[in-house]
Write a protein that binds this DNA or RNA. Structure first.
Lengths: 241, 241
DNA sequence: CGGCTAGTTGAGACTACTCAACTATCGTGG
DNA sequence: CCACGATAGTTGAGTAGTCTCAACTAGCCG
């Protein structure tokens, strides 16, 4: 395992507006700096944690890109999310003291390790931090509800449109372009996340391209007509006209 | 609104092994009793909270049955869960200080109101309670991942089989039969939750009945062959034999 | 008892899946 | 550096599962 004892100050991290430090007072930030003892590097394709692993810490993505997935007894696999810089991994592990899903790096990545017992300890001392932890967990619950909405009530085109808009919006919040991106995941991973087969993902990309809504070349995607994508997402066949 | 200032002691609640009090020490229980100042009754069809309502409290279901649902801008609606006695509602509200989903009673219900600021305050004093709150939120995240798996990778029969088994198992944990139940929700609500149309839900019920796996009469369901339901859930077409 | 909502069933349409062939890209070793 | 194999992605044809629309039945409430 790839552990680095390099001290990283949350107080000087350029992700502090996206990550745990958001909204904390200077003295709380200082305490948080003490909490985060280690960082950990994960190579592309490497595993941050696997389902069943003992839960000890949360992880804040510092750089790179992850997917989380759950697996059934019969080998079925479902991607439950993609995580980028500033996002938190491992919340699923708290309830059973072991991870319920696996987290795999889709590109070389680095995470800040947040030992959970220490985070709880610090949360008892600082109500701002405590509330912030609650907000992070609640945010994950709300995100999951959004995915359920997507999986439960949208058709393939709508799912992919919503996915692309969500991804580019998150990238834009991190200083990247709001119209261009390079996908870190395969068509199969997108399909697993969106509840569709890879061929359907590919066909839908092609259809969007034919319609002039996006430009696709393998992993490169450029959004030419964001309004059209929005329209697809918000299109309810039941209220058609 | 239907507020009752009747004092209810968690310490004597018959749901204490399922609800928040689980695993707390007597002195912590006593503090929790002080926290829960009110109960609230909700009639069948009534709303506990709606999406957009200001968030002030979590709710522990004392009796009755709820559904939670999210709605899109274009009026699409997705049921995100069904909650019964001992389960916690409102976790989605923390992150934005307003509820992200709506909670509606499917039968006359009563909930314990847990003012969230007080719960946080108490959590800072009692680490057991703090950890317990974290576990409850984490449990919700894991549950949501399970729903994503269901919606993203299962077919109609598998979804309904998984749904019935989950429901009867939760009812059984509350002292009800492990083979019989009366559904509290309509075919449409089941369909919304499972990402299928009400007609498909109905047809799938009929098919299970024709195959001798269950007995259905409107809302009454009896599981005749639980092993067959399990087999349907764990059946992966890709690994067929 | 009548009207209304919930649930069932049928027929046909359509979306997304399966299977398959082909192309593009990337990394590796000769 | 190019050739090769492996992986990823695209596209086509046919199929299956689910949806849509519709008619009908059952149960519930006033």
């Amino acid at each position: 395992m790839d552990l680095h004892r390099i001290k990283v100050a949350c107080s000087s991290c350029n992700l502090r507006e996206l990550c745990i430090p958001m909204g904390l007072a200077p003295e709380e930030l200082e305490q948080l700096d003490n909490l985060i003892a280690t960082r950990r590097r994960v190579r592309r394709g490497g595993t941050l944690f696997s389902a069943g692993d003992p839960f000890t810490a949360l992880y804040a993505v510092r750089s790179g890109f992850f997917k989380t997935s759950v697996t059934t007894a019969d080998g079925r696999d479902q991607v439950t999310g993609f995580q980028m810089a500033g996002e938190i991994l491992g919340l699923d592990g708290i309830v059973q003291d072991k991870h319920a899903c696996s987290a795999i790096a889709l590109e070389d990545a680095e995470v800040c390790v947040l030992p959970f017992d220490k985070l709880e300890q610090l949360s008892r001392a600082f109500s701002t931090l405590q509330h912030h932890v609650h907000r992070i967990m609640s945010r994950e619950i709300v995100r999951d509800q959004g995915v359920m909405l997507l999986l439960g009530s949208m058709r393939a085109e709508e799912r992919l449109a919503a996915f692309l808009l969500n991804l580019v919006q998150r990238l834009h919040a991190r200083g990247f372009s709001k119209s261009e991106m390079v996908l870190r995941m395969t068509r199969e991973e997108i399909g697993s996340y969106l509840g569709m087969k890879l061929e359907t993902v590919s066909r839908t990309f092609s259809r969007f391209q034919d319609e002039g809504i996006i430009e696709v070349k393998q992993r490169y995607v450029r959004i030419l007509d964001p309004a059209a994508l929005e329209a697809i997402v918000n299109h309810n066949p039941a209220h058609d006209d």
